[in-house]
């Protein structure tokens, strides 16, 4: 069973719709017991770092994430929470992938909202069958500057930032695959098939 972590901050229904549409069993849950038993975990994000971090701590889900061995997909804020530290609300994060979260530089339109290209820097099962430089949908003010060795793809928005990051069983994307048309569905399908 694929479990989508719900930490009461946003729209997880679209994600579930997308996964179910791909033909995979999938459940939304904030129950640590269920998340522990999942064979894949998706960690979507919306809302703010601080409140999300608080919810995770309160429920003990943060510990489960840190120790999980199953394929894990962080989306948007769900990606950023894998970092060491976030400049959004100045909170310490889960330290799953080394690096910090920064605000998009002044001078750019922030948040970045819309479809931007994702340029691959290395291959990964997550990106199989997706065209390099494909458009994905972004909606964010912060980005996760992970150490370069974990960066699978980048995006240019006046500044170049990591769009896809992975380390061991952890995958994460800054954009919203569930809102990114066919390319997004392909990426979700790739993850479900890992």
């Amino acid at each position: 069973m694929i479990v989508i972590i719900d930490y009461k901050s946003g729209n997880v229904g679209s994600l579930q719709n997308a996964i179910l549409g791909l033909g995979y069993d999938c459940e939304i849950s904030s129950d640590p017991g269920k998340i522990k038993k999942a064979n894949k975990i998706i960690f979507p994000g919306q809302g703010r770092a601080k409140s999300a971090r608080r919810e995770l701590k309160k429920s003990g889900i943060d510990k489960i994430i840190k120790s999980t061995r199953v394929p894990f997909l962080g989306i948007c804020l769900g990606m950023q929470l894998l970092a060491d530290f976030s400049a959004e609300d100045n909170v310490s994060c889960l330290s799953v992938i080394p690096g910090n979260v920064f605000k998009l530089p002044a001078g750019l339109k922030v948040p970045q909202i819309g479809w931007n290209r994702v340029r691959f820097s290395r291959s990964s099962p997550l990106l199989t069958g997706i065209n390099n430089n494909e458009f994905f949908y972004f909606a964010h003010s912060y980005y996760f500057q992970a150490s370069a060795q974990y960066v699978l793809a980048t995006t240019d928005y006046g500044v170049e930032f990591p769009a896809v990051i992975s380390r061991d069983n952890f995958y994460s994307v800054q954009f919203h695959p569930e809102k990114s048309g066919l390319a997004g569905l392909k990426l979700l399908n790739n993850f479900c098939a890992i």
Binding site: G114, W115, N116, R117, D156, E160
Partner: peptide, 11 residues
């Protein structure tokens, strides 16, 4: 700015 590529599409 000159060398950066802002690829964000107009919606």
């Amino acid at each position: 700015k000159y060398f950066s590529r802002d690829n964000l599409a107009k919606r």
